[in-house]
Amino acid sequence: MQTITYREALNQALSEELERDENVFLMGEEVAEYDGAYKVSKGLLEAFGDRRIVDSPISELGFAGLGVGAAMVGLRPVIEFMTFNFSILALDQVINSAAKMLYMSGGQIPMPMVFRGPTGAALQLSAQHSQACETWYVHAPGIKLVTPGTPADAKGLLKASIRDNDPVAFMEGELLYNVKGEVPDVEDGDFVIPLGKADVKREGSDVSIITHGKMVHVALQAAKKLEKDGIEAEVLDLRTLRPLDVDAILETVRKTNRAVYLEEGWPYAGIGSQIVATIQEEAFDALDAPILRVTQADVPMPYAKRLEQMAKPDADRVVRACNRVLYRNGTGS
């Protein structure tokens, strides 16, 4: 095992896939000469040249569409959005072109491409630079959505996403890039994690905290706090939101009979809405309490530090939600 950052894990995945398949290329703002706005593509220009590592103009709609066009004739583009906030400009190409191409061509034109970059808030970047974009993407059939929370998941899932023949939105996190973790050594062979498999990040028997992406770490913090109170929380990391590992969700709910969904985004039509619907449709009898959701406050992200802190979901909020579904008066923090 190597201990590397989330950023390095992504860089390894890109590098290995570029090496493996001549059809893979990386395009986006600042990906080449600048080494990536978040340095995810560091060194790739030097290694692969400007034919395959391509700096784009600031034209999200344009270069997302260019990626779709290249995929239409068999290349495997990796389109980097500096952040998914900016990809809202590109949604026409993502939804109307990438997601629907295979269907409206009657199966003739697959879309083997990846849109990747960070989603969600960092620190004090305020409203337009701090939003979780999962819902925009997961809503449309035809797209797959991957949200790794750890370095190992980042590497294994990015490699799987690049090899997938459908359009994959791959959402990272600005605050995750420096997170370190164990990842299998390069020498130990191809490390690929298949899409559609959730991962139990912590076993527990009393309550399930189901989550994805960056919030895995918040869930684990909450579980630690609950442990002090004698509560064993299970943390289920969905890892991919479409395809969704429904079996794993039902399994943890049947085990603990109580669930909290934790996500970084807004509640209305958020990922949690779908998870709650799925659980109540398919495991209603297993529930001992209503499922609660912990989300961002239902407001645009404020700038002021204290307000921003209040707006974000945090471990204390998760602890309180867990206590509520356990019908107990916990300390809350």
Binding site: L102, Y103, G106, P110, D166, P194, G196, T240, P243
Partner: peptide, 12 residues
């Protein structure tokens, strides 16, 4: 033709 690869693990 919604997806070209049907996933063996997760729901689409």
């Amino acid at each position: 033709h919604v997806y070209s690869e049907i996933n063996e693990h997760g729901r689409l």
